[in-house]
Simulated assay, not measured.
Amino acid sequence: MAEHRNIFLVGPMGAGKSTIGRHIAQKLRMDFYDSDQEIERRAGVDISWIFDVEGETKFRYREEKILEDLTNKQGIVLATGGGSILSEINRNKLSSRGIVVYLQTTVEKQLMRTKKDKTRPLLQENISNKIFLESLALKRNPLYKKIADFIVQTDTKSPKIVAQYIINILEKY
């Protein structure tokens, strides 16, 4: 049964990993974790501060440590950061320690969902967020696909419906 296995949600920013993950966890009565929130909680500062002061390299190091801890838990739902799959170490942990669901979305939906969000450091300094997100997609989408046990499109359905769809798939998995 899905409740006893880890469920790891991967995908780009704005795909709905946190929102959908919370719905899945609630429905299956599992613990929910968001790796970005866990980084902030443990660091005592927000991710934007970490990016500004320490840089992306040190952030990615923190992310690896958090994912090591979280992926060792049993029976959790984990929403990962969009860039967590850049690390081969992270990809190996995710694919070997749980079911990986790639939440796929278009750049247009990402722009719509993130336009008012000032907490995303990678979007703060870019002149054209569309071009930037397209370049991230070119690099990251193949990595999401590589480790995904299955792919779910999140553009046209509500988070609750997507969560139930994923639960239905997991029950057959």
Rank of each mutant, 00 (worst) to 15 (best):
A2C: 10
E3K: 14
E3M: 03
H4G: 06
R5S: 14
N6C: 09
L9Q: 01
G11C: 02
G11V: 06
A15K: 08
G16W: 10
G16R: 09
K17V: 07
S18Y: 01
S18E: 01
I20G: 06
G21M: 08
G21D: 01
H23Y: 15
I24F: 00
A25C: 05
Y33I: 11
D36L: 15
D36K: 01
Q37Y: 00
I39D: 05
E40C: 14
R41Y: 12
R41F: 15
R42Q: 14
G44Y: 05
V45C: 13
V45T: 15
I50R: 04
F51M: 09
K58Y: 00
R60M: 11
R62V: 00
E63N: 05
I66V: 12
I66T: 10
L67S: 05
D69E: 09
T71G: 08
Q74V: 07
G75P: 06
L78H: 13
T80N: 06
T80W: 04
G81F: 04
I89N: 07
N92V: 01
R97A: 04
I99V: 15
V100G: 06
V101N: 02
Q110N: 12
L111E: 04
R113Q: 06
R113D: 03
T114N: 05
K116W: 02
L123A: 10
Q124D: 11
Q124I: 14
I127P: 08
N129T: 05
I131T: 02
F132Q: 01
F132H: 07
E134H: 07
E134I: 00
E134F: 06
K139G: 05
R140G: 07
R140C: 02
R140H: 03
P142N: 01
I147M: 02
F150T: 12
F150S: 08
I151D: 00
V152T: 10
V152D: 05
Q153G: 03
S158N: 09
P159R: 00
I161V: 13
V162Y: 05
A163E: 01
Q164V: 06
N168V: 07
L170Y: 03
K172C: 05
Y173E: 14
